[in-house]
Design a protein around this nucleic acid. Structure first.
Lengths: 133, 133
DNA sequence: AACAATAATAGTAACGATTACTGTGATTAA
DNA sequence: TTAATCACAGTAATCGTTACTATTATTGTT
């Protein structure tokens, strides 16, 4: 495995992921980092997002509607997708609950369960407010 | 909303989804239905899979590695993705557990949670067998 | 500080999955 | 049987992502 070399672009991508709670798509990361590196390439963004995901410094989140999202929070946690506005939000369950779900699943399952990720669906508070006006 | 008309192609797609437990990709559905309708179009398969998903007769499953999978089982249940062989398997939790997770999540969340889907990761029993030989 | 080795980049082309378009054929209700 | 319209096959276009290549940046060594 080749040694990892520092790059300012990767650092900028990491910082953006760390500071945002938006679960941006690769393109959204690109548009942001472009402000600091006007001629960064979209391929560079993808390569680094995948690299960060591989070394455990980012998480890739698949949703049924469109491209993957990326998250700088790597501790186990879950997500909520609003059916109305499409926003992806963090949703924390306490550690115990997370582990319980995995244990419960393991009882009904014939292999080894290492982790899990739950995507919740519904309507976010912002959309509820708007539709009740 | 336009009225739905019967089509033999859609019926064939539905039957395939109902009889398989493979969580096929759109392309896999295409290849299968092609046996019965040799000149069915891939676009027709996509259109019908999305239609069935919209009317609640199929489920679309997003995974972090590649294209979406489709499932004819529409009752709430979860899935397991084997990190070794990439197979996607059904994983059932009892109803009570499913609802408990949603309720638990609702306590920590500000919107309305209607449903959830958990993807478990790990190693399936087949891969465990193979690597222990 | 200069060098050599090599990882990372920008830019662009290619790719796979999915959707959109168009003219033709099938289904439906009258 | 007809008229309306939905669904189709075939194809082109789009979107998200990856691969390629020549150049630039980083790193360890003199």
């Amino acid at each position: 495995m080749a040694a990892l070399k520092y790059s300012r672009q990767r650092e900028s991508i990491k910082h953006f992921l760390a500071e945002t709670k938006d679960h941006p798509t690769a393109d959204a990361v690109y548009l942001h980092v472009k402000k600091e590196f006007p001629n960064i390439s979209l391929g560079t963004v993808y390569r680094n997002l995948n690299l960060l995901t591989d070394i455990g410094e980012a998480v890739k989140i698949a949703t049924p509607d469109g491209g993957d999202r990326f998250d700088g929070r790597v501790e186990p946690h879950n997500h909520f997708l609003c059916k109305k506005c499409g926003r992806l939000l963090d949703l924390d369950l306490d550690m115990r609950s997370l582990e319980e779900v995995n244990q419960l699943a393991a009882e009904n399952f014939d292999g080894i369960i290492e982790s899990s990720s739950t995507l919740f669906y519904g309507e976010c508070s912002d959309c509820i407010k708007k539709s009740s006006q």
